[in-house]
Write a protein that binds this DNA or RNA. Sequence first.
DNA 1: CAGTGGTCTAGACCACACG
DNA 2: GTGTGGTCTAGACCACTGA
Lengths: 231, 231
Amino acid sequence: MIDELAVIIDSLVPGDFLPSEPKLANQLGVSRATLREAMRVFEGRGLIIRRQGVGTLVASPPQIIESGIETLESIESQARRIGLEVTMGDLGIKYRQPSSEELERFAMLNGLNVVEISRVIEAEDRPVAYLIDIMPEDLLPGETQGSDFRGSLLDLMIQRDHPAISHANSEVMAISAPPDVARQLNIQRGDVLLCLESWLFTQEGTVIDHTYSYFLPGTFRFHVLRRPAEG
Amino acid sequence: MIDELAVIIDSLVPGDFLPSEPKLANQLGVSRATLREAMRVFEGRGLIIRRQGVGTLVASPPQIIESGIETLESIESQARRIGLEVTMGDLGIKYRQPSSEELERFAMLNGLNVVEISRVIEAEDRPVAYLIDIMPEDLLPGETQGSDFRGSLLDLMIQRDHPAISHANSEVMAISAPPDVARQLNIQRGDVLLCLESWLFTQEGTVIDHTYSYFLPGTFRFHVLRRPAEG
DNA sequence: CAGTGGTCTAGACCACACG
DNA sequence: GTGTGGTCTAGACCACTGA
C-alpha cells in the first residue's frame, strides 16, 4: 500500500494537492487510520505537507542547511551562508523563578528570575526548528527588549564581549515530539525530531544559557568528524 | 490521561507487569488505540517494554553509555569502559554487486563484490542498536570469517595496520524506524531512532566502509562540544 | 490452548481554513 | 457553511508466547 502511495506522490508536482484522506483511503482500499500511518513516513521525509483545514500537498524539495555539529552557529547565520531566508515567529518570553537545579547551574544571585525564550524558525514558509533558551534575566541581551526582536539570540551573545562565550556542551537526541513542541511546529505529536540540549559556557567557565533546539527532518543535515581515541 | 498512566507506571517496580491493554484502556476510560499512543511515549523513554504474546512490563533503568560523538569507538569498547556487558546477535552477511555509487566511493577494482554485514547489539537482554556495514569484500577483516564471529568490526579495522583508519565522516539524523530495522530491534515501525550514517576513511583518504548505526533511545547519550567559528 | 500485544477497519466528532 | 486534517472509539482479526 505504501508503495502505491509513493507512486501517487511521485506522479504529482510540488504544490499539487493529494485527494482528501477519506477519498484517498477509499481509492487505496484501506482505512483512514492506515493511510495516515503511511503518510507519516512521507511527511517525515518532508515530501508532503499536511495542513488542517486545507489539505495535503506535495512539498518542494527544501534547501538543506548543512553544517558540522561541532560548530556553534546560529540557524540564521547558517542559513545566510547558503542564501536561504529564514524568519522568526513571535517570541514567547516568560519570567519565572529558577528551579533549584538552575540556581546551581547558573550560579545565580538570589532573587533573580530566569527568563525563558521560545520561538519558531521558519524557512520557505514552513516551520523548521523550535528553539528554547533559558537564562538568568540579567544576562539577556538588551537588544531583545521589545517584542519586535527578530534576530538571533545566539549571535548577540557571541558578538558581545561580556560575558564572552567560550563553547556549548550539547547532547544529541532523537525524540518523539512532545505535544507542546508538536503544536508549535505544526506537526503531529509523535513525529520525529532531532534535539540538541545545550549549556552555553563563558570563558570563565560559568553556564549562562540552557537551550533546547528541535529540528525537523529535511532541512538540516548535521555531520561530524569522528576520530579514534588516542592510544 | 497520560498523567494517570505515568502514575500507574510510577507505582510499579521494574519487572512488574502492567494490566493488559484492553483492561488498562477500560480502567483509564479510553480506547485501546489512544492508550497505545500514550504508551509509546513511555516506551520511547525506555520506561516500559512491550512484548507480543507476553505483556507490558516496567523496565529497569538502563545503564547509560555516554560518549562524545566525535570519538570513533565501537559500542563494545564503550560498553566495556562502564562495565556493561553487550552481546551481538547473529551476523547477517550478504555479498552483492556494488551500485555505481559504491563503485565510485570505494574506488573498487572491477569484478569485486561488496559485503553487507548487519547485526543487532543487545545489552541487558534488550536490543539497543542495529548496525550495518557495507564494504568491498577484499577489505573485510579475516577474523570475521565463520559465522561465530562475535566481536567488533570497527575494533578490528582500527587495530589493523593496513589499511590504517584515519577517521569517519558521519551524518547525524533522527528517523522513524523503517519496517526492517523495527523488526530487527523488536520495536514498532514509526518508533524514534538516532541514526549515524558514516563513511570510514583510511589515512590515504580512500573510503573503505559505509555504515548505518541505529540507536534506540535510553541506553546511549551522545554529547558534543560546539565552538563558535573562527573570526 | 488461552491470553498477550500488533494491526486494521468503520465511523464519529472536533478544530481549523477559507469562501 | 463546507470541506479539510486531527483525534478518538469500539470492535475485529492476526501473530506471537508460554503453559
